[in-house]
């Protein structure tokens, strides 16, 4: 049974005649990582998290079922135990003055007993690699640490699904590495992840499937290798550098076989073609 089911989802913002999302349907299995690309990806994330229809106005049709519960049927704060969403700018998600205060905030709102909060706080901070920084002021953390703290704050609430909307958009390369290392370890632990991210070099190795929205409709939903083969002529899609190089050389060098999406795969395929110049 899928942990997330989207059935014929259509959403139109107030004042617009055309829907931003139109008849989108897909499932996500437990422990899977789904990457979303294309137009209206943030709107789709807001639907998955229940912010639409509870917080953001507009006309929503169809249904989103998270862990057996329709997002329409329960209030947004109650959905927080099912879906955890990490927003783009960690500054907007760390409301408290200390890291500890931010991680326990959601648990406090859910009425979690103090002893359990302590245990979950330690666990969440260890997971994101911020153990020992409990009392550190949120504003003192680096960009990468802030985003990891945001993930810890969500994980402490024990959601069934983790949704991340461009989590590295505000981060430098080091912060981006930190966040993707964390996501890789979460995936290994079986966390279900839905991610919107424009960094193909990091997303391709992480995702199990990739979903492309075109004009609000589901256009492609396949594993990464097939995804890049399917969208190779789409100028709006950014490819991993190694995939880009492979596709550029494919015809000239007469390459056949699977498209590489990681550096290791690229070296294995393209390495034998490289012949250093002799002097």
């Amino acid at each position: 049974m899928p942990i997330l089911s989207v059935r014929d989802l259509t959403f139109t913002y107030p004042g617009l005649t055309e829907p931003t999302l139109a008849g989108v349907s897909f499932d996500v299995e437990r422990g899977e990582c789904l990457a979303i690309f294309g137009a209206a990806k943030s709107t789709l994330c807001l639907c998955l998290a229940g912010a639409i229809p509870h917080l953001i106005s507009g006309r929503m049709e169809g249904e989103v079922i998270v862990d057996g519960v329709s997002t329409r049927a329960v209030r947004l704060p109650e959905l927080a135990t099912k879906v955890g969403m990490v927003l783009q700018d960690p500054e907007n998600t760390l409301f408290n003055l200390t890291l500890e205060g931010d991680v326990v905030f959601g648990m406090e709102n859910l009425g979690t007993p103090r002893e359990e909060m302590t245990a979950r706080l330690e666990e969440a901070l260890a997971l994101v690699g911020l153990s020992g920084l409990h009392g550190r002021m949120s504003q003192e953390l680096s960009g990468g640490q802030k985003q990891r703290a945001s993930v810890a704050a969500v994980l402490a609430m024990r959601p069934s699904i983790l949704i991340l909307d461009e989590p590295t958009r505000e981060l430098d390369p080091l912060g981006t590495e930190e966040v993707f290392d964390l996501l890789a370890s979460l995936k290994e632990r079986g966390t279900t992840i839905v991610i919107v991210e424009n960094d193909p070099d990091h997303v391709a190795p992480l995702a199990d499937r990739m979903l492309l929205l075109r004009e609000g409709r589901l256009a492609v939903l396949v594993p990464p290798r097939e995804f890049y083969a399917a969208v190779r002529d789409d100028p709006k899609i950014r490819f991993p550098q190694v995939t880009d190089l492979y596709l550029a050389l494919q015809q000239r060098a007469g390459l056949e076989g699977q498209i590489p999406i990681t550096l290791e795969e690229g070296i294995a395929i393209l390495g034998p073609l490289y012949q250093p110049a002799r002097h």
């Binding site: 135990t81 907007n92 998600t93 406090e108 709102n109």
Partner: peptide, 26 residues
């Protein structure tokens, strides 16, 4: 603009979910 994002983020963290909210600090 920040206030509207913070409102969304607060709701996503179950702000106001229950009247019997607990506190980590004592």
């Amino acid at each position: 603009r920040r206030a509207s994002t913070i409102a969304l983020a607060l709701d996503l963290r179950a702000f106001g979910a229950r009247p019997d909210r607990t506190f980590f600090v004592d």
